[in-house]
């Protein structure tokens, strides 16, 4: 730069020099722009360009009922176009006087992973790359130290002697770290205790994934893939409607079922009846009975103060 005076001086001396510097500038500029244009070529493969309507969609709580109906119709249209099946998409609200809790009997669980796959099927999770809300751990007998957990066990037969199994999914905390850290309020806890995600609001920063002590959140690292014939058409806005690339998702206690009075899919499929779900405000419910009568239950990583609505317990 020291000698730039002479260079810039050159710009101003004589027609020949001017032409030369003009040629130089245009050579760099045209080739540079060509390279810039070519560098953007991958964008031609962009299939899922957000429409103006989708780009401008308002935040969940700010949508009026009419706007919500339009959004639900749009989701149904888009899903039908993509999967060839018209889904039934609803915006299910929490029920009054209901707070959900989940109890899982560690004495019963055999680690068969059926819950994992029933959940995938029910909640339209991507089959490749694989997204699963439930992770079943195999822990050595007598230890709750997660660092001893084996995730990839695959023996001939479960349960294996000397080990017990523990499925982990979203613990639906009363004091959820994921909700606290989300910079855009894309995830929140509803009055029935379910922490939900507005997939149309999430910006994909993955801060919640770093914050969750239960490793319960999953990110769509690419466009999810669900075979057309495997799509579950019974959908909810905050539940199992198909997600897009670049957003978070996680277990939502099967909102599309539970806010409709049904049991979650993981519970129904459990071959040993280890999973119990219901309204904890109703003392005669299954979860109410368990929390009243069983001696020991564990809130995973209780010391973190997250206060899960998911309880592990033991019995004879």
């Amino acid at each position: 730069m020291n000698s730039s005076n002479s260079a810039s001086g050159a710009v101003q001396t004589g027609d020949g020099m001017n032409r030369r510097s003009f040629l130089r500038a245009s050579a760099v500029l045209t080739t540079g722009l060509a390279a810039l244009a070519a560098s953007l070529k991958p964008l031609m493969e962009l299939e899922d360009f957000p429409t103006a309507e989708r780009f401008m969609q308002k935040y969940y709580t700010e949508l009026t009922p009419t706007e919500m109906d339009k959004v639900l119709k749009r989701i149904a249209d888009e899903t039908e176009a993509q999967y060839g099946k018209r889904p039934h998409v609803r915006d299910l609200k929490p029920m009054d006087g209901v707070e959900f809790a989940y109890c899982l009997n560690l004495t019963r669980c055999i680690g068969c992973r059926k819950c994992v796959h029933a959940c995938v099927k029910e909640n339209n999770q991507s089959r490749n790359p694989e997204i699963q809300y439930i992770r079943v751990l195999r822990l050595p007998h007598g230890s709750m130290d997660m660092e001893k957990a084996e995730h990839h066990y695959n023996p001939e037969k479960v349960p294996e002697p000397g080990f017990f199994n523990m499925p982990v999914q979203c613990q639906q905390c009363k004091n959820p770290p994921c909700v606290k850290v989300c910079p855009v309020h894309a995830t929140w806890t509803d009055t029935d205790g379910i922490t939900v995600i507005d997939y149309d609001w999430c910006i994909g920063c993955r801060y919640c994934e770093a914050a969750c002590p239960y490793w319960a959140r999953r990110f769509n690292f690419t466009k999810p893939f669900i075979p057309k014939d495997k799509l579950n058409p019974e959908m909810a806005y905050l539940g199992n409607r198909p997600r897009r690339q670049g957003v978070m998702e996680k277990c939502h206690f099967c909102i599309q079922r539970t806010r409709d009075g049904r049991y979650p899919a993981c519970l129904e499929v459990c071959p040993v009846g280890a999973r119990k779900f219901g309204n904890v405000l109703d003392p005669s419910s299954e979860v109410g009975t368990i929390l009243r009568t069983k001696r020991v239950f564990i809130q995973l990583k209780e010391e973190l103060g997250t206060s899960p609505r998911f309880f592990y317990y033991f019995d004879v």
Binding site: M95, V98, T258, G261, R262, Y263, L267, E268, C270, P271, V272, G273, K276, F277, G278, N279, S284, S285, E286, T289, I290, T293, D315, V316
Partner: peptide
């Protein structure tokens, strides 16, 4: 006995359908 009591309360064994039975 105790298992039957649990079963009767829905705590032992498998359930399905509606938690909000009506």
């Amino acid at each position: 006995g105790p298992t039957y009591r649990d079963w009767d309360a829905g705590v032992h064994g498998r359930t399905g359908g509606f938690w909000d039975a009506k």
